[in-house]
């Protein structure tokens, strides 16, 4: 029969010491999560901060306003935010919540992007130095579209992002905007495209046939004597136009 010796006082002290060390180590590891700012926000990809004493974490809430109008309900083309680029735009990046401390990593940079064919053709960013680590806060990204008001219109996908100091994305939201041109077709690009469309219809309706085989092509006129358009014509030459008298 095997006899198990009762734990001596020395062993008990050792176990208590190990348990105490483990508790201290756990507490030390938890300090960055409880304090502000939080160095590695990626530890909480959902933006939640653990609450004290096992309480459920209170998630951070982020949102962005386009000139005071929320973008959260504009996640599809059908619900695109109707905007004009005729005046200064203020994108207000808000954050709030969290049980303790500010947003993970602090708000170091906010960025706005508008996409065309998947590539950002408008990018505006604002850097906070030092990063904002307040419990709740707002950063206003103000920019003047300038001549864009007279150039572009239409529906565009946009991305509003908040970055931490180490560069990782704390939060981002994709939304759509419907940019209205002045007088609906008043921007430069729609007018140019409309003219191009009409010109191509005109071009195909006035297409010139190629001469059949066996019929000599019209000889090219000498340089400087005729317009370039007439050199591509395959119609028979006008004798009156070729004669020296006709030029006078």
């Amino acid at each position: 029969m095997q006899h198990v010796a009762p734990p001596s006082g020395r062993h008990v002290v050792g176990r208590v010491s190990i348990a105490t060390l483990a508790c201290v180590a756990a507490l030390l590891l938890a300090v960055p999560l409880l304090g502000a700012p939080i160095g590695q926000g990626s530890a909480h990809p959902n933006g939640a901060t653990p609450g004290p004493h096992g309480a459920p974490p209170a998630p951070f809430t982020y949102w962005v306003n386009w000139n005071g109008r929320g973008t959260a309900n504009s996640s599809t083309i059908g619900s695109a935010l109707s905007v004009t680029l005729g005046s200064t735009i203020t994108l207000a990046f808000h954050w709030s919540g969290g049980t303790l401390g500010g947003p993970p990593g602090g708000v170091s940079e906010v960025e706005f992007q508008a996409f065309l064919f998947g590539f950002p053709f408008i990018t505006r960013a604002l850097t906070n130095n030092p990063a904002l680590t307040t419990y709740t806060g707002v950063t206003n990204l103000t920019w003047d579209p300038g001549a864009l008001n007279y150039i572009i219109a239409g529906d565009y996908q946009c991305l509003a992002s908040i970055f931490a100091a180490d560069g990782h994305t704390i939060w981002s939201e994709s939304f759509y905007i419907s940019v209205h041109a002045p007088y609906t077709v008043g921007a430069l690009l729609p007018i140019i495209l409309l003219l191009l469309v009409l010109f191509e219809v005109y071009a195909v309706l006035t297409v010139k046939p190629t001469p059949p085989k066996g019929i000599a092509a019209v000889p090219a006129p000498e340089k400087g004597t005729s317009s370039p358009a007439s050199s591509e014509s395959s119609e028979p030459p006008d004798p009156a136009a070729e004669s020296p008298e006709a030029k006078t």
Partner: peptide
């Protein structure tokens, strides 16, 4: 540009 298509 007129808002009937999205090329984003």
């Amino acid at each position: 540009q007129l808002g009937y298509l999205s090329l984003s």
